[in-house]
Amino acid sequence: MKVAICAQGTHLDAPMDLRFGRCPYFVVADPQTGEWEHVPNPGPGAAGGAGIQAAQLMIKLKVDAVITGRLGPNAMEVLKKAGIKVYEGTVGTVRQNLEAYRQNRLPLLTQPNAPGGHKP
């Protein structure tokens, strides 16, 4: 079981970043064992298609769920097709959001809640 949380920094106590395509890091954690690692997001440097690129990274990392604040339509479509669940996190640290997820307190996102930011 792997969950990726959008983060402003590289560890569990970093503030969560509400953006998906353009958050600087993902903290990828196993909620059962508590193991975690950080992965840089290729999105922020991209001229366009940041959300799509980040979604591709989630597939490569084989995560089961993503915790983010906002998600555009393209990234949502990719994650849905890949069978990755999306949860809406809130302002706080990565650890707090992971804990909320473990306790089933985060709402499941099934529709994009942000406009597509892509510019080819």
């Binding site: 991209a46 366009g48 298609g49 940041a50 799509i52 690129q53 979604a55 591709q56 597939i59 393209n74 479509e77 990719v78 097709k81 890949a82 069978g83 892509h118 080819p120």
Partner: peptide, 16 residues
């Protein structure tokens, strides 16, 4: 970033 490789297929985002 117009292509995404999913576990079961490749998706094309034509507008990109």
């Amino acid at each position: 970033h117009a292509l995404v490789v999913l576990p079961q297929e490749v998706m094309v985002f034509s507008p990109m």
